[in-house]
Structures are given as structure tokens and as C-alpha cells.
């Protein structure tokens, strides 16, 4: 187990280092000089040069890379070109919206998908299965922003029990959760549909295995065999999907953030790109990469907890 852990950790650190380099290079070679963009087309060359010096853009690239990386390690993400405020503060504010939203959506999606997948697999071919499969087909096909608009129409405009958008901040947790509920549902439904389908097919595979027959021969009922022997064996692909979905929810909620007017990471990155605020772009992308790699690491740990065979191997 220790070997497994060290291996995973080593690969985590190496991936982060590689990712930081790639992000830096890509942002560097992207066309558009932030200084001249900020000053407009008619700026004097010496004004641009002065701004470049002020922003620290005149030093060699490798120096800027090093100071960026070392800064990040000590929690200093630099200063936004556009807003002239520390990037770390900007990210932290947005993270307080995006992270709870992602977790909220993931919890909802798992809570919907688990029972749906289990019911469908255990009643394979019967009405419940057909129903779940039809519903998930719809969930996969319909885009989440459309769900979002339907939810707003129903709960915010018709019933008026939920806010239609905006985020009041965490001073009042109840209001904050209320503001996140509709976006979380909109995000969760398509994810739940995918997850339920994966769980169903993985569970059907597991139920066809020899050890299920052995369990039945011991005197377990169908249900007992499913819960005790089928479910855990079906979990590995499900964990993979949950890991991928979390990464997606963290950064990919941009359309939903737009629909509900939430100040999340997705909108931050969109604004920064359009304003050539490279330092913010770099930092947010790095943060997202870190989140993805961390989630993968945790998924790997979850595999090892679920499956004893993986504890030995790499």
C-alpha cells in the first residue's frame, strides 16, 4: 500500500510540474501583448514599454516562469493586469462559489444515480429498467442550460420559492445554499444520467460473474448477492466517472454560471481571457489542473480501497 501511495504521489508531483510548464508556454506564445492591449491601439511605444516593465513582462521568460512557480508555492499568484488586485484573492472569492456548487451537484448526481442504476440493473428488462433507461437517455441528450431555464421558469418565476440568479455570499448560509440549489440541480441531472447508465451496465456485468452464482449457491437471495458482492465490484468504473465529473463541474459550469449569474471560476476565466489578463488565466488554469490531478489521485486511492488487487500493483 505504501509503495502504491508513493508511486501515485510521485506521479502527482511530476504531472503538476509538467502542467505548469505547458500552461506557461501556451499562454506565452498566445498572440496579444497584455500591455499594448490594455493601453489601446494608439498608445505610444514608450508608454507600452513602461507598462511592460511595471507588469514585469520585460524580464526573460525562464525568470518569469520561475518567479510564477515559486510565487504559487508560497500562495502568491501575482497581481491581475486588469484589476491590479492580488490574483489569489480573486480566485479565492470565486472558489467559494464554484467548489460548493461542484460538490453540491456531484452529491445530487450521485444520490440520484446510485438508486436509479441499482434498480435498473436488478430489474433488468422490466418496466423499472425501461423507465430508468428512457429517463437517462433524455438526461444525456438535453443540455443542462435548457434544464436550467426550465427550473428558473418553474421554481423562480411560477412558484417563486427559489431565487432566479445571483449569489448573496456566505454570510447567510441558507440563502447561499438556496442560490446554489437550482444551478446544482441543472448541473447534476445530465451527470446523474451518465452515472446511472455506467452503474447499470457495470452492475449487470458484475451480476453475471461466477462469484455471484457462488453467493447464490451459499443461500444468499438475489438482493443480498447484489448488495454484498455485486455493488462493490461494479464500483470501479463508477468512481472513474465521478472523478471526471468533479473536474468537469469545477470548471465547466460556465454556461450555468452565466444563466444564474453566479460569480464562479468559469466566468472569471472567460473574462480574463477576453481581457488578456494572462496572469489570471495562468493561475486559474493551473488551479484547475491541480484540482483535476488531485481528484485523479483521490480516485486512485479510492480504487485501492475498493480493490485489494490494486494495492500491490502500480
Amino acid at each position: 500500500m505504501l509503495v502504491y501511495l508513493t508511486r501515485r504521489l510521485t506521479s502527482l508531483i511530476l504531472s503538476l510540474a509538467a502542467a505548469s510548464l505547458v500552461i506557461f508556454l501556451v499562454v506565452e506564445v498566445a498572440p496579444g501583448d497584455p500591455a499594448s492591449y490594455m493601453l489601446g491601439i494608439n498608445a505610444q511605444p514608450d508608454t507600452v514599454a513602461a507598462l511592460r516593465a511595471e507588469l514585469g513582462l520585460d524580464v526573460p521568460r525562464w525568470q518569469r516562469y520561475l518567479s510564477w512557480v515559486t510565487g504559487m508555492l508560497s500562495g502568491d499568484f501575482g497581481t491581475s493586469y486588469t484589476y491590479r488586485t492580488p490574483v489569489s484573492g480573486m480566485i479565492a472569492d470565486r472558489l467559494w462559489v464554484s467548489l460548493p456548487l461542484a460538490l453540491y451537484a456531484l452529491t445530487l448526481s450521485t444520490l440520484i444515480a446510485l438508486p436509479a442504476g441499482i434498480i435498473a440493473a436488478s430489474r433488468r428488462g422490466r418496466a423499472a429498467d425501461v423507465g430508468v433507461m428512457a429517463a437517462t437517455q433524455l438526461g444525456v441528450a438535453v443540455p443542462n442550460f435548457w434544464f436550467a431555464m426550465l427550473l428558473v421558469l418553474l421554481f423562480a418565476i411560477r412558484l417563486q420559492i427559489m431565487p432566479s440568479g445571483g449569489f448573496p455570499g456566505w454570510e447567510d448560509p441558507v440563502q447561499a445554499m438556496k442560490a446554489l440549489t437550482l444551478p446544482a440541480i441543472a448541473l447534476a441531472l445530465p451527470q446523474a444520467a451518465i452515472l446511472a447508465r455506467v452503474l447499470r451496465s457495470s452492475l449487470i456485468d458484475a451480476l453475471g460473474e461466477d462469484y455471484i452464482r457462488t453467493a447464490r449457491a451459499k443461500g444468499l437471495t438475489r438482493g443480498q448477492a447484489l448488495w454484498r458482492h455485486g455493488l462493490r465490484n461494479a464500483l470501479i468504473p463508477v468512481l472513474t466517472i465521478i472523478g471526471l465529473q468533479f473536474s468537469f463541474l469545477l470548471a465547466g459550469a460556465i454556461i450555468i454560471e452565466q444563466v444564474f449569474y453566479l460569480p464562479g471560476l468559469g466566468r472569471l476565466i472567460f473574462q480574463s481571457i477576453s481581457q488578456r489578463d494572462l496572469i489570471v488565466v495562468e493561475s486559474v488554469v493551473m488551479l484547475l489542473v491541480f484540482a483535476v490531478i488531485l481528484v485523479n489521485f483521490m480516485t486512485d486511492l479510492a480504487y485501492a480501497i475498493v480493490d485489494p488487487r490494486l494495492r500491490r500493483r502500480a
Binding site: T214, A215, A217, N233
Partner: peptide
């Protein structure tokens, strides 16, 4: 009681 042919797959690996 019953035992089956494939010992490799007849036990739950987890």
C-alpha cells in the same frame, strides 16, 4: 452445497 468449475472466478476478488 455447490462448488463450480472455475476457482479463479468463483470467489469475490474484493
Amino acid at each position: 452445497g455447490m462448488i463450480f468449475q472455475e476457482p479463479m472466478t468463483a470467489l469475490n476478488p474484493l
